[in-house]
């Protein structure tokens, strides 16, 4: 037992620290100073936050003038760690041959990791700035193409961010 080095509280503290009171005063002064600093939080529904391009809000599908970019390759679905994405492909006569007949993201499963965006070979699914997600039932939480398709003009910040940093 002799070679065990003891490291008790009383060994670590010096005299003034053992007295507690000066340290307590230090702690109290710290919190007192905090009281006069500006707040981090905001009055949410009135004061809204506009995220930067780097923000990962709910994933959306990019909608171009001639339809969605998505070719329903299913890589997002495969990479999704939460199994939130379901894609069903169908054939189209366009050049891109296939398109998502059904594209559903279960927003109750989504964890906003952004893997779908990262893996997408067509830059067709990107993380939007939308952080306000409310639904009244599990069924409503499953977003189909009607809710997922967002015009490319609204996603410029994110696409710019991806081009610059990815």
């Amino acid at each position: 037992m002799a070679n065990i080095t003891s490291n008790t509280e009383s060994q670590r503290l010096n005299f003034w620290e053992k007295l507690y009171l000066p340290e307590i005063a230090r702690g109290l002064s710290l919190t007192l100073r905090q009281m006069f600093k500006p707040t981090f939080t905001r009055r949410y529904p009135e004061e809204r936050w506009n995220p930067e391009g780097s923000y990962r809000g709910r994933p959306v599908l990019v909608l171009e003038e001639d339809g969605e970019r998505c070719v329903a390759c299913g890589l997002c679905s495969r990479v999704c760690p939460a199994l939130a994405i379901e894609v069903r492909a169908a054939e189209t006569q366009d050049d891109k041959e296939r398109y998502p007949e059904k594209f559903e993201i279960n927003m109750l499963r989504c964890i906003y990791c952004g893997f779908c965006e990262e893996v997408c070979p067509e830059e067709a699914i990107v993380m939007s700035k939308d952080y306000e997600l409310v639904f009244g039932s599990q069924e409503e939480g499953i977003f189909g193409k009607d809710k997922l398709l967002v015009p490319v003009a609204q996603l410029q910040d994110r696409l710019e961010f991806l081009r610059q940093w990815r």
Partner: peptide, 13 residues
């Protein structure tokens, strides 16, 4: 309120 101020929050308002 005081807790909020110490934690740089707004508190009940």
């Amino acid at each position: 309120k005081i807790a909020a101020w110490i934690q740089n929050r707004v508190g009940p308002d």
